[in-house]
Simulated scan of single mutants.
Amino acid sequence: MVATAMVTLDDIMAALDRIRDDVRVTPMQASPSLSQIAGGPVWLKCEYRQTTGAFKLRGATNAVARVGKVAGVTTASTGNHGRALAHAARARGIPAIICMSRLVPQNKLDAIAELGAEARIIGDSQDEAFLEAIRLQRDEGFALIPPFDHPDVIAGQGTLGLEILDQVPDAATIAIPLSGGGLLAGVAAAAKALRPDIRIVGISMQRGAAMAASLDAGHPVEIRELETLADSLGGGIGLKNRLTFPMVRDLMDDLILLSEDQIADGLRHLAQDGHRVEGAAAVCAGAVLSGRLRADDGPLVLILSGENIDPARHAAILQEAS
């Protein structure tokens, strides 16, 4: 029996009212090539075309709108949440310090700096960077807005679920890139509140998937971060995770973990169809290409979550297949 969601449909509807003037309604496109492979209709939710190039703007905007008077805002991020928080903070004239590990690609650091925020490099993992964000909250009066385990962030990401069902009302399955779980928790809470029979599938990488390891253990665990093409899916979920771990556990119907080659296959296939996305956004397509994700029971929606990949790295991956 599914537990009561900790972020409700009412929370998500309120978030939609709060952010609708600050975020885009992103396109939904059919994919004939993936539909043929999956055995049924496949739709691509092109969230990579969101302002700042990723879904993270939804949660960050909703959270920043609710912080009140603070010295600034801070977070730990693998890149996309930091960029979104920097954008949302600048829109409201609030200083932002984004704490990140040395594994974050340079293009994501540059994008944050261009938005007027400080990109502060701390340690070799997102968990280490998070300690600095906690210090800024404790010692300097910053509002800490985590990348996923926060009710306002989850509710903001959940607005994507409302959009998906508005665009594809008969969707049978939604496939969602899975890292800390904010996107999956929010989208699943919205979708299952409106359509309890809808299937939610999380997709992640085999290298350093913290949520998968935590689900296997039955509680949040620490893992070693490893370099992966799906770098935005890296990082821990936090040993004191309050929201996303139980929500993912209760609302997700299946989990698929991909090899680096399978992620690259997804990225290349999407590029051939005109979608230039990052590795984390390509995992759902990679799952279809691997034969592990199908559309036999009805329309399948794949969330293409972000586009923030280093152009040289993207070109090199495409070149590998030629």
Rank of each mutant, 00 (worst) to 15 (best):
M1R: 09
V2N: 14
A5F: 05
A15K: 02
D22F: 13
V25L: 15
T26K: 11
M28Q: 08
A30L: 03
S33L: 12
A38G: 01
A38K: 10
C46S: 05
R49C: 08
Q50Y: 01
A54R: 06
F55Y: 15
L57A: 12
A63I: 06
R66I: 00
G72Y: 09
T74N: 06
T75G: 08
A86M: 02
H87R: 15
I94N: 06
A96H: 06
I97A: 10
C99R: 06
L103Q: 12
V104M: 13
D110Q: 14
A111L: 06
E114K: 14
S125G: 00
S125L: 07
D127M: 15
A129Q: 10
E132K: 07
I134H: 12
I134V: 15
L136E: 02
Q137F: 12
E140G: 09
F142V: 09
I145E: 07
P151S: 14
V153I: 15
G156N: 12
T159C: 03
A171Y: 09
I176C: 04
P177S: 11
L178R: 05
G181I: 13
L194F: 00
I198F: 04
V201C: 07
I203N: 03
S204T: 15
S204N: 12
Q206W: 11
Q206K: 15
H219G: 03
R224I: 14
E225A: 03
L229Q: 11
A230V: 02
D231W: 12
F245A: 06
V248N: 01
D250L: 11
L251R: 08
M252V: 08
G266H: 08
H269W: 02
L270D: 05
G279L: 07
G279Q: 06
A280R: 08
A287T: 05
G291H: 01
D297A: 13
L304N: 01
E307L: 13
I309Y: 01
I309Q: 14
I309A: 14
P311G: 08
R313N: 15
H314N: 06
E320V: 05
